[in-house]
Design a protein around this nucleic acid. Structure first.
Lengths: 156, 156
DNA sequence: CTTAGTGCAAAGCTTTTGCACTGCA
DNA sequence: TGCAGTGCAAAAGCTTTGCACTAAG
């Protein structure tokens, strides 16, 4: 999607930032892996395949920048790494989606839900707390791992 | 609540672990601050008031142990620290409560909600994902900070 | 008496930062 | 050409670990 790349370039210029080879390379890595949840180190390794001389610090600085520009979403799986994935490239930030983390294979699935919105309304009413953002992680077992588990138990 | 302390002692013995002064001291600190969300460092400082010679490493080792025994709950506010609070001391783990984090004053409020349960059912049906635990953080502004904000704007 | 638990200091880990150099505008 | 951006290495900050000592059972 060169459209997103173009959007990113315009966004950089609009903010008085420079369009560098490294920034574009990092964007491309994230773009080529939609739905993947990459750590800074993983992004670094991918970018190095094409640009051997990039520095890890640049990756960290760039993902922070892209996160502030809402080009990518950042979140944690609580394994000690911050993870990033390509966002929707919209000008205005909407609530991002949530994550299902499989405790067996570690894979991450996304899901959208509008139920949280009504929960936020309820909290506003009952506690006077004004919610502006939320982060939801559900831990469990994915369909594949459940089937594997069932098959294994049958064999025993 | 010496009952909880007794429960903890029994739990330690049941698992072949020793009841030490340090472990009891750390439990007491957590017990005396229900609803507080302490970091290891904060627990360390509190325990040091009574037991000046305790080591930070012991606090880390103990909170990890207590967390595994489900005596305390651990969670993150994404400020780089892992936080702990006293749990419900039940033998079987139930879903723990969720957190509202005020982006202005940093205070953390707890709330209980059963709405997540129905969401989990929905996910099970539509995606075949079996949810066993969840973590929900809502970010926003608490009642007090909203009022302060409103008062400030009126003055300007 | 035995060995789990502790305290200290050092190491580990991801992420950030200082600084001189490079390359976009 | 000027200054934002980069690469490298060092630092930062929370947490873990190795080791000799202490104390619980």
């Amino acid at each position: 999607m060169p459209d997103n790349q173009e959007y990113f370039k315009v966004l950089l210029k609009k903010n008085g930032l420079k369009v560098t080879t490294q920034r574009i390379a990092i964007l491309e890595v994230l773009q080529n892996r939609p739905g993947c949840h990459l750590t800074a180190e993983e992004i670094y390794d991918c970018v190095k395949e094409e640009h051997a001389d990039i520095g890890l610090a640049t990756v960290y600085r760039t993902v922070q920048l892209m996160s502030e520009l809402n080009v990518i979403d950042r979140f944690r799986l609580d394994d000690g790494y911050v993870r990033y994935e390509i966002g929707k490239m919209e000008a205005e930030k909407t609530h991002h989606h949530h994550h299902l983390v499989c405790l067996n294979c570690g894979r991450v699935f996304a899901f959208e839900d509008d139920m949280l919105e009504s929960l936020e309304g309820k909290i506003q009413e009952s506690m006077g707390f004004s919610v502006v953002d939320h982060e939801v992680k559900l831990f469990g077992y994915c369909e594949g791992c459940q089937k594997k588990q069932a098959a294994k138990q049958q064999k025993e």
